[in-house]
Every structure is written in structure tokens, then in C-alpha cells.
């Protein structure tokens, strides 16, 4: 079940994209999502598409992973596209029935939305596929740091994030164990109607909940015993290095933005 989930997974590798500073990648991905809304004609979308494909090629990860990343969302995308196609008016009308119409403008809009969705998913998949979750949480901590001045708990948030990420596989294992233990005692997961399915989840959820509390207490004691007193006066073992390729990424995005501004209509 969990193996199908491409979004949020990390594939170890050693490409230029892999080696980039996670801060650069994180900011670039968000920036990409921002500037994709600048596009409003086929040339500008084409430019964005070429840029994305170039980035994917640089990562040396097979395109298959990215397509798999789109798959779980395909119905949502098609639904949105369909709504756009049927309800947008303008240009030459090819087909009309009741309140639905398929027009030149509608088709164009639908196509744009489709490309926009796919590019956003490609880019965010590229971010998570090439960046270990840990580096991502380091990057988030760094980027949240300025907010400390307004008393935002940046250290606590990043500690929570890294502990949460570290416990994901441990809790997955435990979920599996509890499921199997309950199955051995006759619980049928995923059978029957919706109500029965929901009820079957309870013997999984409650033990998982209780054991999380126990884990939390054990972890808190272990952390205290090792001298954890909060974020004050701590040094950091991991440091992020901003290097030349990261600056190149920033420049590339700046150039792309300028290009988009010129070719949009």
C-alpha cells in the first residue's frame, strides 16, 4: 500500500540536483509554483515544460517515477479539466447542450490547467525524490529562522518535524504488526460496507495511539537524560553549504522569470 506512494519518497542518487542545497531546492520549488501562474499561452507553457524536463534529466531519475507521481491525482486533474472545458465560454463554439458547451477557449483553458497540474506535481516530486527528508527539515528550520524575532518557535517546529520523519518507518512497522496481530485474532480489515470497515479500524487505531503515548514518554525521558534543555545554547551537527550550483539555480530561475514575462501574452 505504502510502496505505491511516490509523493514524499526519496530516491538516493548522486546527480547535480541531488547535491544541491536543500534550501535552494525548496525555495526554487515554491517559486516555480508561483511563476507557473504567469504562463498564459502555449509558448510560455512550452518554456516551463522544457525547463522542467531539463531539471528531471539532470536528476538522472527515470521519468516513470514522475508519471507514477501524477497517477494518484489523475482523476482530480481530469475532473478539474473537464469542468474547465465545459463551463468556459469564448471563441468558436464546437458543441452546445443545455448549460454545457465546448468552445475553443474552454479547450485551451483545460489544456493549460492540465499542463499546470502536471508541471507542479513533476516539480514537487523532483524535490522530494532528490532530497532526503532530513535535509528538507534542515532547510525548513533555516528558512523559518527569521520568524524567531516574532517569537515563532522555529527550533521546536523543526525538532518536531525531524522526530516525526524519523518515526514514520517505525510507526509503519508497528501498524503492520498490530494489523497482523488483530487479523490473527479474527479482525477483518477492508471487508464489508463502509460502516463495518470503519469499525474494523478501531482495534488498529487505539493500540497505535496508546503505544505512541508510551513512545513519546520514553523518548522524552531519553532526551532529557542526554541533556536536552530546549533550543537555547545548542550547536548543530548538520550544516548546510551554499555552493556555486545553488547560485546558478537562482540565476536560472531569475532568467526564466524574465523570459516568461516577455513571452506571455
Amino acid at each position: 500500500m505504502m510502496n505505491k506512494l511516490i509523493l514524499g519518497r526519496y530516491i538516493p542518487g548522486d546527480s547535480i540536483i541531488h547535491r544541491l542545497d536543500p534550501r535552494a531546492k525548496l525555495v526554487a520549488s515554491f517559486y516555480f509554483i508561483g511563476i507557473i501562474f504567469l504562463c498564459n499561452n502555449f509558448i510560455s507553457f512550452g518554456a516551463m515544460f522544457a525547463f522542467t524536463i531539463f531539471a528531471i534529466l539532470l536528476s538522472k531519475i527515470s521519468l516513470r517515477f514522475f508519471i507514477n507521481g501524477v497517477k494518484p491525482l489523475i482523476w482530480l486533474i481530469l475532473f478539474t479539466v473537464l469542468l474547465q472545458v465545459m463551463f468556459s465560454q469564448g471563441g468558436e463554439v464546437y458543441f452546445k447542450w443545455w448549460i454545457f458547451s465546448i468552445s475553443e477557449f474552454g479547450i485551451k483553458n483545460g489544456a493549460f490547467i492540465f499542463i499546470r497540474f502536471v508541471l507542479i506535481i513533476f516539480m514537487s516530486t523532483l524535490l522530494t525524490l532528490t532530497t532526503p527528508p532530513l535535509s528538507l527539515s534542515d532547510a525548513i528550520e533555516y528558512l523559518l529562522r527569521p520568524l524567531k524575532t516574532i517569537k515563532f518557535p522555529a527550533h521546536e517546529i523543526s525538532l518536531m518535524l525531524s522526530i516525526a520523519l524519523r518515526f514514520v518507518p517505525t510507526l509503519m512497522d508497528e501498524t503492520e504488526k498490530i494489523m497482523n496481530a488483530q487479523r490473527a485474532r479474527g479482525v477483518d480489515f477492508g471487508e464489508g460496507n463502509l460502516m463495518q470497515k470503519m469499525k474494523a479500524i478501531v482495534p488498529l487505531l487505539i493500540p497505535l495511539f496508546v503505544s505512541s503515548f508510551n513512545r513519546a514518554e520514553d523518548l522524552a525521558i531519553a532526551m532529557e537524560a542526554r541533556g536536552y534543555q530546549g533550543g537555547e545554547g545548542r550547536t548543530k551537527y548538520r550544516v548546510l553549504h551554499w555552493e556555486l550550483p545553488d547560485t546558478v539555480v537562482v540565476i536560472a530561475f531569475a532568467l526564466l522569470t524574465v523570459l516568461l514575462v516577455f513571452i506571455r501574452s
Binding site: 527528508p133 532530513l134 525531524s162 522526530i163 520523519l165 524519523r166 508510551n214 513512545r215 520514553d218 523518548l219 531519553a222 532526551m223 542526554r226 541533556g227 536536552y228 534543555q229 545554547g233 545548542r234 550547536t235 548543530k236 551537527y237 548538520r238 550544516v239
Partner: peptide, 23 residues
């Protein structure tokens, strides 16, 4: 339950970080 770090070296470093040992 006592493994705080996300990797082995992070976990070993955790106590040192708490004490403010230089990197």
C-alpha cells in the same frame, strides 16, 4: 524509543548538540 536522531551520526551527536559542543 531512545533513538532521537534521523540517522546514526545525528543520534550520536544529539547529546553533544545539547551541550553546545563546537561542530
Amino acid at each position: 524509543n531512545q533513538f532521537v536522531g534521523s540517522t546514526v551520526e545525528d543520534d550520536v551527536a544529539f547529546g553533544l548538540e545539547n551541550q553546545g559542543v563546537p561542530r
